[in-house]
Amino acid sequence: MSSTFDTVAKIIAETCDIPIETITAESHAINDLGIDSLDFLDIAFAIDKAFGIKLPLEQWTQEVNDGKATTEQYFVMKNLCARIDELVAAKSA
């Protein structure tokens, strides 16, 4: 988890020019860090490459739009990292 967090925080810091020390496990990528949807595509690209996965952004967006999930479930850093770990585990299973 910690290494996933470190990697994702570094990606966000470099992609969006956000001081890495301001990014915490509780940070909401959109509400707290101010990342917009276009910048998040860059982040998703970097995460996909770094972890060898494909973040299911369309599915997440659809679930949020349909009221089946909240943005916190996917875009708070600790939850985002947990999702990434799940995808990595599923890939190697």
């Binding site: 595509l41 998703a44 996909d48 490459k49 494909k54 973040l55 952004l57 599915q59």
Partner: peptide
């Protein structure tokens, strides 16, 4: 270069 979910590079 990359086919993501809902985006392509």
């Amino acid at each position: 270069e990359h086919e993501g979910s809902g985006y392509v590079i």
